[in-house]
Design a protein around this nucleic acid. Structure first.
Lengths: 147, 147
DNA sequence: TACTTGCTTGGAGTGCACTCCAACCTTTTA
DNA sequence: TAAAAGGTTGGAGTGCACTCCAAGCAAGTA
């Protein structure tokens, strides 16, 4: 999908070769951890279980994440916030790797997730109402029923 | 959720039957499981960890839940929906058992939980917006970027 | 050269919230 | 009387999503 001729320059750390286009910035695992809030452990685990597209490596085998990887991780983060199971995210990632003929399945997964989110928001709003009533009760009566 | 005419002749044990006031209805563990949607296993576990007030027993040692127990379980169910950790619910239950002088602490716990719920709703709405944009994208473009 | 920092791996461990098991006991039904 | 239905217990097992470990490699610094 990306042209990405491996610029090959450095080995470790923030390279940021002044002449390289921004689109080819490369990030170490700890940089990505700092940027995403995920641990390096979790990033490696995501890759192992198939939740990341192939992450590029240096000649010594260290990971170098691209901006595209960061975008993907940001999206995965949103899916995670929805409460979607990791296994379902992996399924989604597989569909992405399979190519554009899986668009319908991907949309179906996302729509299912959206429905779950809508339902969850309703649940939370209901629980919030109960909580507010209870808090109000404590605020005004301060000696009511034991519950 | 709770059907008020269940028991009356629940065979076993100390039940005072037809002449007893409604307030003294008693429910077996499987009746409570059916009414709450929790498993009997989970109900026993709740009691073991201190999430239930003492549940009354028949002379043979079987549990008999009261309507008050059902009310408590309904409230616990709401707390569970908020995503509150079980350990925190146990802490709340302990405060209830300690008496009315713990009202302030209880209210504080509930207010903290409410704040969490409000934040969680905001997160979900944010994720929902991302999801909707993505779904819309699949609906209209059907051939875009791999994400 | 020695040390420090940062990365690699497979596999084991953790914490949560259940969920189930085995062995046993009452009560009700056939 | 026998079997079925429903209850009891402590403790072990499950599934999820991480989280950590040990042993080792590569590059930069004093």
């Amino acid at each position: 999908m990306i042209d990405s001729t491996t610029t090959s320059t450095t080995a470790t750390g923030t390279n940021t070769t002044a002449t390289a286009p921004l689109a080819q910035e490369r990030f170490t695992i700890s940089e990505v951890a700092a940027l995403t809030g995920l641990s390096a452990h979790t990033l490696r685990w995501y890759e192992r279980i198939g939740l990341m597209p192939h992450v590029d490596r240096t000649h010594t085998g260290q990971r170098r994440f691209t901006r595209r990887d960061l975008d993907w991780l940001a999206f995965v983060g949103k899916l995670r916030l929805t409460g979607m199971a990791v296994a379902d995210m992996v399924r989604y990632a597989e569909l992405v790797r399979e190519g554009s003929h899986t668009h319908d399945q991907r949309r179906a997964i996302l729509e299912g997730t959206r429905d779950d989110v809508v339902a969850r928001i309703a649940e939370l709003q209901d629980a919030l109402a109960v909580l507010d009533r209870k808090i109000d009760h404590y605020g005004t009566i301060c000696g009511g029923t034991p519950s």
